[in-house]
């Protein structure tokens, strides 16, 4: 590791700025994750509807916001929406006029589109027999969704959700192009001041890596807690203990 030309003093000096950048990155992760998830539910219901008037627009939404590279979405919102006069005059300009607003809009729409597919896949994975059993018990559709389909979909879809969240965090690194000083932008700024190509970027990499792995571990615990009912875990644990010498 000593081969890495890291300037320890510079790294130490940069820490406050890097933490400030991390804070921005975390903020630009958490907020769009929440907004995107909230958007994903209604769009997913529309997508799964047998009525074409509902499912077609939802499908177009998903294809566009999932298929377009995030960088282009960000440019589109940041540069493109300013072109629309009605928007510039309207009350939403507070949102679309600021880099943060644009980044949050672009990231949220992108995440929503991915989450529609994650949700749909997870809901479709719930065995039909369980829904029938709930129906036979006279449980209403709303309650079946809340108490049977959604809890099970969460268990089936958790891995896909984790993957999407992790790749989303990494995706936020582009927001520096609209002048937001996130973790990546802080590293770039330090590079431009010092021309040290390794220290700032590797420090930022460490921060990203740590953030991603905290999330990963969080998901692992969540998954273990959700799957406490599965026989493999419950039965395998005591059996494993007896086998080890």
């Amino acid at each position: 590791m000593s081969a890495l030309p890291i300037d320890v003093a510079l790294a130490w000096e940069s820490l406050p700025a890097l933490f400030a950048g991390l804070r921005v990155t975390v903020f630009l992760t958490v907020l769009p994750l929440m907004i995107g998830l909230m958007l994903a539910f209604p769009i997913c219901f529309a997508r799964m509807s047998p009525r074409r008037v509902l499912s077609l627009p939802a499908e177009i939404f998903v294809v566009f916001f999932r298929g377009a590279p995030l960088l282009i979405l960000l440019y589109l919102v940041y540069y493109g929406l300013g072109q629309i006069e009605a928007l510039r005059e309207g009350p939403f300009w507070v949102l679309f006029g600021s880099p943060f607003g644009c980044a949050i809009v672009a990231l949220s729409l992108n995440h929503a589109a991915y989450m529609v597919e994650v949700l749909r896949g997870s809901l479709l994975a719930v065995p039909h027999g369980l829904v029938e059993a709930s129906e036979a018990l006279g449980i209403t559709r709303r309650n079946i969704f809340l108490w049977v389909r959604m809890p099970l979909a969460l268990r089936y879809g958790l891995k896909a959700y984790q993957n999407e969240v992790v790749s989303f965090v990494k995706g936020t690194a582009i927001v520096s192009v609209v002048t937001i000083t996130d973790l990546m932008a802080v590293a770039n700024a330090i590079f431009e001041q010092t021309y040290d190509p390794f220290t700032p970027i590797l420090c930022a990499a460490t921060f990203y890596w740590a953030f991603v792995n905290v999330l990963r571990i969080g998901f692992q615990f969540w998954g273990r807690w959700l799957n406490r009912h599965s026989a493999e875990d419950a039965v395998a644990a005591p059996a494993g203990r007896t086998v080890t010498p």
């Binding site: 995706g171 590293a187 590079f191 390794f198 990499a205 990203y208 792995n213």
Partner: peptide, 14 residues
């Protein structure tokens, strides 16, 4: 665990 953009910059600059 790290953004691709960061790897691109690392290789481009370093």
């Amino acid at each position: 665990g790290v953004p691709s953009l960061l790897v691109i910059f690392l290789i481009f600059y370093g």
